[in-house]
Amino acid sequence: MRKQIFEFLEQDTRSAALVRLAVSLVSVLILWEVVATFVTNRLLLVPPLEVLNALIGEVKKGAMWENAIATVTAVGTSFIVSVAIGIAIGLSLASSKMLSLTAGPLLSALNSVPIIALAPLFIAWLGLGFASKFVLVLLVAVFPVVVTTEAGLRATDRQLIEAAKSFNATGLQIFSTVTFPFALPFIVSGIRVAWARALVGIVVAEFFGSFAGFGFAIMSASQTFDTARVLGYVIVLGAMGLIGSMIFEALQRRLAPWRQE
């Protein structure tokens, strides 16, 4: 019986994955509830049910909706633009050795700078609101896409390129039928990382420079010591991250089924 349960959970199916997720969520909730019965200071920790009530309260007030629109529009547009720009930069780096050698080190340097720390500076430059959020998210989310696009294009199997050339393929045909399809699963893995980074970027941008959005709500709730609301919005952000990650992982499997087996 026990063996069968483990075998089911280790399966590579959608239902097994959902059950695994449910098991870990329930475990965390139970642990949380237990800890909250010992830590009774409600400024430090609020039990799960109170957090849920706080979230319901936000929905009823309409604040949830308002914040969601502000955050999702900003992070959504900026994320899409970063993916597009990231792929474009990755393509040019992979196609030109010169460019890769000259611009590559600069990009790695930029990538290791804590851009998040520059958030106040961007707000000073671009003002409060959409523009500063957009730029900050773009700067944190673009790099994983650049790196994986370039790596994926460069990793293409030489044999496949040679076979295409042997059939007299043009440069464009080699790109569209060999190198790009080969790089696509790499690019999607970069996009997955970019989504997680974009969510961190948007929250930090909203901490400092906005009057709406999940980051703004977390900041204002913590200033009034409303721990239930803080945790509630953090959970909403966590859910956004999880859903994105699951979608991109599924996409990756779909694009490269030969890597799994």
Binding site: Q159, A163, A164, F167, N168, Q173, T177, W258
Partner: peptide, 30 residues
């Protein structure tokens, strides 16, 4: 390279994201 010659490579020169039928048609598609 030209269509009067065709090469059979060692293993793994097939496109992994294309089916058998699509791989066989690859030279024609190009």
């Amino acid at each position: 390279p030209g269509r009067d010659r065709a090469m059979v490579f060692q293993q793994d020169a097939l496109l992994p994201w294309k089916t058998v039928a699509e791989n066989v048609a690859y030279g024609l598609t190009l």
